[in-house]
Design a binder for these strands. Sequence first.
DNA 1: CGGTTAATTGAACGCATTCAACACGAGTGG
DNA 2: CCACTCGTGTTGAATGCGTTCAATTAACCG
Lengths: 217, 217
Amino acid sequence: MTLAYPLSDPRGARPAATLAETFERLGARMHFARDEEIYAQDDDADLLFQVVSGVVRTSRLTADGRRQVGDFYYPGDIFGLEPGPDHRFAAEALSACELMAVRRASVRAAAGEFEFNRAILEAARQEMERLQEHVLLLGRKSACERVASFLISLAQGRSDGPVELSMGRQDIADYLGLTIETVSRMLTRLQGEAIVEFPSLRAFRVRRWTALEALAG
Amino acid sequence: MTLAYPLSDPRGARPAATLAETFERLGARMHFARDEEIYAQDDDADLLFQVVSGVVRTSRLTADGRRQVGDFYYPGDIFGLEPGPDHRFAAEALSACELMAVRRASVRAAAGEFEFNRAILEAARQEMERLQEHVLLLGRKSACERVASFLISLAQGRSDGPVELSMGRQDIADYLGLTIETVSRMLTRLQGEAIVEFPSLRAFRVRRWTALEALAG
DNA sequence: CGGTTAATTGAACGCATTCAACACGAGTGG
DNA sequence: CCACTCGTGTTGAATGCGTTCAATTAACCG
């Protein structure tokens, strides 16, 4: 990891209008290489991050080695916001990443800034929404439905152009609570039914949206 | 549902120190009978609730009838905080309930934007913690581990006295992402190994804590 | 080209589900 | 007090989905 700017920089500035601006003002720009750890499980949750470029994965390891991927974070997303004083999930760079980081202390110092507080709350809400959706997926969906849901969540918005798959099959499996083999089988099946198409291993295109949505449960 | 006090009561009071105090001051006391709906899926998320007595269950139904229980809320817990403008999960009273309810707008008006955000954020964090734990459980734990984890979460704190099971087997199953039969089998097994003991269907006692924790994964 | 890692495919297994029957408890009325 | 019923929970047997283990293929990079 390389640090471009010093981390602490209160500098007594005025309230920021947007979270992005606050990160720009109070934050430090950081760079992480592919597969580099951003923070570890059980680390102090001191910093709050916003993705500028690249993709980040959060994950948690159980004692006996099983892994659960929490989520994937894309440019604009905020992560590192934790319930307690330490990180329950570790964070790693899926690809080369550029991040903005702010200390919690800085957040507190700038606490008068309504907009900033509001933005953190907004981030917490997004996080809750992701988590609720994830609980429903893991609790009540079949393997096929999970994979279909996952592809939809990646592809939605991107009209019809090919969507990049930033993560490998193992990451997808650990995110969906499946094995890598099952994920592979489901992808093959979806491709066989001409619902999605894989120009390469790391990119796909949705061919039949309604069919995919029907399969997502 | 019966309403003891009017819902809106700004009364120009001072900022509250804690969310609990805010509930005491601004909230309206509400009563719900067993199995009564507190709010429905897709209702406007206008109110925020705190449990005074009784137990509340949140749940979500999929189109084809599968149900996922979000969580169970006990006295002191806050629920109803949602990411978006409407409720993704419905809430029902598991037993006869006494709740304090406040309008979001009331809290914001009375406590000030800052206090409001701080308190809500704190509640959101607790909710996130529950959700993260739930994701790990649903994604990577076996049926036995899920049931053991569930019993532990209910029993922790309560030294060794019998713990009440406020919910039926179906609720437990829908919370753990299992079927009612599987839950029953696991409970029978834990009982057979003298790890827990069931004086009645709706109460249990932990006999061997370390064994139970070992099984929880 | 090899050499290496990631992904797919196949076959056998096992855990949880499904379907079905049975047991238990609480409430009701004879 | 017992018989009846209904809801809830338990138990058994068979099925199936996803896993596991193993082998093969494909992609990537020197």
